[in-house]
């Protein structure tokens, strides 16, 4: 038993302490968090825009061309793997431009997430009773005002939990950033593995950190869900 503990301590030392290897993990975590954070923001912006265009078309028949573009976007993004999207954006679209990898990753994951956010928000908008829309219009609000003051606040509240789950998915998906040679959390663990030839310890550590982050996020989403339900005006 004590042999096992000594062996464990040795491995821990080699993988994390020696040569300050723990920094691969912490720096990687910082990269992962930054990509996720900015991609979430970009995803929300794109998602809301697309959702509003799509439901405007559904409700009024206006914005035909914009709606068509949005539909192409949704089909392409949701119909192809996110790794392939990341590679294309890095090696094809930004190939000739000297631009930070962080920027590319945020763009790629933001565009990808936007497609899922859009469908979540759209379902939220469509779930609002059409009487709400008519009440707003009958008071004299125009289409945009009715959306902003009356429809979107209710839709947003309804889809918050679903959005939370989408961001949990996004956090995990950023683990493919290594494909464009970014040193995110996953890549950080992998670098340690390649130095120490010990796969288990660094990769389990990486898995554990993802798990803890996801559990924290899930806890927050559930809490939010409960709060929304109890204040269900």
């Amino acid at each position: 038993m004590s042999d096992w503990i000594i062996a464990f301590k040795d491995r821990f030392y080699v993988n994390f302490i020696k040569d300050d290897r723990w920094q691969y993990i912490t720096n990687g975590l910082w990269v992962t968090l930054r990509i996720t954070f900015f991609a979430v923001i970009l995803g929300i912006v794109i998602g809301f825009l697309v959702a509003i265009i799509r439901s405007t078309y559904d409700k009024t028949g206006k914005m035909k061309i914009a709606n068509f573009i949005c539909r192409v976007y949704l089909v392409v993004i949701r119909g192809t793997p996110v790794v392939v999207q990341l590679l294309i954006i890095y090696f094809v679209i930004f190939a000739s431009v000297d631009i930070g990898k962080m920027f590319v990753a945020v763009i790629a994951f933001g565009i990808n997430s936007g497609a899922y956010v859009a469908e979540i928000v759209r379902s939220g908008i469509m779930s609002i009773d059409k009487g709400q829309f008519e009440a707003g219009r009958s008071l004299g609000f125009n289409y945009v005002q009715t959306m902003i003051y009356i429809i979107l606040p209710q839709a947003f509240k309804n889809v918050l939990p679903a959005l939370g789950n989408e961001f949990i998915v996004l956090l995990k998906e950023t683990s493919i950033s290594g494909y464009i040679a970014m040193e995110d959390l996953t890549k950080g663990g992998d670098i340690i593995r390649s130095r120490t030839y010990d796969a288990m310890m660094p990769l389990l550590a990486v898995a554990l950190i993802y798990l803890v982050m996801v559990m924290i996020l899930e806890f927050l989403v559930r809490k939010l869900e409960r709060r929304l339900r109890s204040s269900d005006h």
């Binding site: 009773d129 009487g131 709400q132 008519e134 009440a135 009958s138 209710q154 005006h233």
Partner: peptide, 15 residues
């Protein structure tokens, strides 16, 4: 429309 008030069967208050 600001000068034409409307009342609906389903009330349609903003919840």
């Amino acid at each position: 429309r600001q000068k034409m008030g409307m009342v609906f069967q389903q009330f349609n208050l903003f919840p």
